[in-house]
Amino acid sequence: MLAQAYRQNLPKYIRLCEQNYARINRLLPKQNDKGAVNKVLVGGFEFTLTVLEASPYTNLVSLKQTDSQVIGFTRPDLNVRVYHDAKVAEVVCKYYPKRVKPSYGYPNPDMHQKDEKYQLNAFLKDWLEYCINQGRSTFHWDTDHGVV
């Protein structure tokens, strides 16, 4: 019997990217400028969202776990392209030499999963939900300039 090749379910993938767009917009810094930062504290973890690139229709956002009480584990660090005109957000991985393909043959020399692109965006979904449901945004009162 021949194994059937993996075929990405495009409507399911687009729905995930649309949901990630809604989630990431809740966490983005209020300013849409390059270099704008928002920090979210979740338990002993600190997650930082930084706008790396800003244009009228797209943003490139870095999501990093910057502080942790757990030593010895790789901290999440993703780049996410946010398309404001299409209202979708998808992972653009900086650790891959090229764009992540929609699907990979299996086995493959780089050991990518058949649905690697979907899994990266599903991880983003879980991470964003965790930050929204369990986190609190940091806000520093500026007493010297009349905010308080």
Rank of each mutant, 00 (worst) to 15 (best):
K87F: 03
E116F: 06
L120A: 02
Y96H: 14
K114G: 01
D110N: 14
A89N: 04
P109M: 10
Y104G: 04
C93F: 10
C93I: 00
P109L: 09
H84S: 05
N121G: 05
S103V: 12
H112P: 00
C93G: 02
H112E: 15
K101Q: 14
K98S: 11
N121E: 08
V91Q: 07
Y104K: 05
R99E: 11
K101R: 15
Y106T: 15
E116L: 00
K98D: 08
Y104S: 04
D115C: 12
H112A: 12
P107L: 01
Y104D: 06
D110L: 13
V92S: 03
P109Y: 09
E116K: 02
Y95R: 12
K87Y: 01
K114M: 15
P107I: 03
Q113K: 14
Q119F: 04
E90W: 04
E90A: 06
N108E: 04
C93H: 09
N121D: 15
L120W: 10
Q113T: 13
N108L: 04
D110P: 00
Y95G: 12
A86W: 03
H84R: 06
D110S: 13
E116I: 00
V100K: 00
Q119K: 11
K87H: 01
Q113V: 03
M111T: 05
V88E: 03
K117Q: 14
A89K: 04
E116Q: 10
K98N: 08
N121V: 07
P109W: 09
D110G: 02
P102W: 10
V88G: 03
K101F: 06
D115S: 14
E116D: 02
C93P: 00
K98R: 10
K94Q: 13
K87V: 00
K114N: 02
R99N: 10
E90H: 10
D115G: 08
N108F: 05
Y106V: 15
V100T: 15
Q119M: 11
C93S: 15
V88K: 01
Y95D: 13
C93D: 14
K101V: 01
K114E: 15
V92H: 07
D110C: 10
K94M: 12
N121T: 08
Y104P: 00
N121S: 02
E116N: 02
A89I: 02
V92T: 06
R99A: 12
S103T: 14
R99L: 11
Y118G: 06
N108H: 06
K87D: 01
E90N: 09
Y96E: 14
V92R: 13
A89C: 01
G105E: 15
C93E: 08
P97I: 07
V92C: 07
Y104C: 07
K114D: 00
